[in-house]
Design a protein around this nucleic acid. Sequence first.
DNA 1: ATGTGTGCAAAGAGTTTGCACAGCC
DNA 2: GGCTGTGCAAACTCTTTGCACACAT
Lengths: 174, 174
Amino acid sequence: MKAKVSHDDRSSGHAHAQTPNLEHFRTVLHEHMLKRGLRTTDQRKLIVETFFHSPNHVSIEELLAEVRRQDPKVGYATVYRTLKLLTECGVAFERKFGDGLTRYELADEESHHDHLICVDCNKIIEFEEPKIEELQERVAARYGFVLKSHKHEMYGTCSECQAKARGSIRRTGN
Amino acid sequence: MKAKVSHDDRSSGHAHAQTPNLEHFRTVLHEHMLKRGLRTTDQRKLIVETFFHSPNHVSIEELLAEVRRQDPKVGYATVYRTLKLLTECGVAFERKFGDGLTRYELADEESHHDHLICVDCNKIIEFEEPKIEELQERVAARYGFVLKSHKHEMYGTCSECQAKARGSIRRTGN
DNA sequence: ATGTGTGCAAAGAGTTTGCACAGCC
DNA sequence: GGCTGTGCAAACTCTTTGCACACAT
């Protein structure tokens, strides 16, 4: 089976350059909950705050592990349900890269980035490339489109996995 | 559980605009099989040819359904195994969009295109922008990646829908 | 004939859901 | 106190795997 890959993008240098405006997200979430008559429980508070302070692209499992360090009896289901809540009210984005896990990311519009994903070890690197963004707009304009959003994911092999592949004639089978 | 309306390209009308060089892929596959002592069975032939003539991003289920129209007793496992084979020898790419299904795509480097999708009328326009491709490579290189594939989808409003919106601005709400 | 390939069904992996009890409002 | 939320485990969905038989080579 697949190793649990948790190396993430910390190494990309400026992943969380400036801490995002958590207060804003707390407010959005709170209002959403008021509007729907949802309750503030210890578990939700814990999960939400843990998520807010997690590296980008946490998986449920990683998040749960972290949550359980503070409250070992929190269950999977609650994490799933809470993250779904965050997604619904626009505080988090749900991302599915190729590894079968759902990962979550703060819906931080300010720090827009796209993704570079290693197809071998599933490492995820965030990048920003203003020139690409600009070209996108130009392409859109060419077809008369006004852009709202985009998804740009690049899949390839990272340097480590290239080295690994060179070292042992590929019998990965992974 | 099927009939997922994930923004995909099936409505673009000409998924395989110009038929890719299938002969090339048949050769690659054949050599790969020779090299590994794999056998050419009726099921494999059928599955491979069906895949070659399927629209982009077929799911296993869609492919199996098509295959079974010619040979109803082909099993899931064989399709999975054959597609894995195609992936291994570089003839197909495995793609996981957000709907929990694995989709497969011909590894057709030549006719690469990305998608511009109207969020109002769901029109899909295929575009190519070599400058973006080039920048992608540069970004990848910056992080030591060797690219295999990418997904670039831009969502926005097409000119017609913009016009429509301008025509009836009054009761938009949001 | 030999050993790979196939179909079936069961096992895995990740996610969702039903239920009874806990605890917010 | 009413009703939502939680934890647990079972159910689900998609994919992989073990096994006995089928069939390319």
